[in-house]
Amino acid sequence: MSDDIDPNGENMLAAEYVLGLLNADEAAAFETLMATDASARADYARWAEDFVGMTDDIAPVAPPAALLDRIRAAAFGTAAMEEAAPAPKPVKPAKSSWMERLGLLPAAAGGLVAAMVALWAINLYVGPLLDPPATATVMLASADEGLVVEVGYVEDSGNLEVTRTAGAAPEGQVLELWVIKGENPPVSLGVLPADETGTLVVAEALWPLLRGAQCAISIEPPGGSPTGAPTGEIVAVAPIVWVG
């Protein structure tokens, strides 16, 4: 059988990823691959299942009783809940929220499900090793999915990577990206580039806003909202989903 062995072993990336042997760039590339490639995800899962067998002979050891209290405090504590909130449960805006005042409903775009599954699939790879920075994604889509914008962000980088995968601003107008934290008014993150992909630079003072918040896109006159608040139609709203 050894004659069949591919000398380059290029299909061993999934195994190397599970073992933690890839460097940070290679691991990130493999995660990107998994986001779009079901067979890469299947390879990952198969190796993870196989390698975990190496822990079968590890004897269980009861942790000290006091540890459970510490863990409860860390998991359920106020700070922890705040941090945990954005990813798991999309919250229906309270009656008086600005979104309801604008007549918006929480958007649940069906065609986005596949993309979201791919993104969430990355999360469950339990993250790369080497303690990478946290990353965030936002999938913004209009109700009819005529406009779809994906935003990617690496914690503390200040650079929002924006990709418009469907639709565009109406003729003579622009799309403006906003961040909304809780009941606070929207804060502009900038006008989306005319190109399909581009980078918006976020001022450092705004970085903390990106945790536990939502993004929205509004249609604005050229140059962006003249008032500092959305003036045109809000066409998409979505939570910022953090990994790590």
Binding site: A45, E83, V126
Partner: peptide, 30 residues
Amino acid sequence: ALQDAFVKIWRNADRYKVNGLSPMTWLITV
């Protein structure tokens, strides 16, 4: 590390379903 693991498991429990791993594999891998 055990504390970190259970906090992470609690926070990421909603992501478990899509990962294709059996539950103990997921817990041990995290």
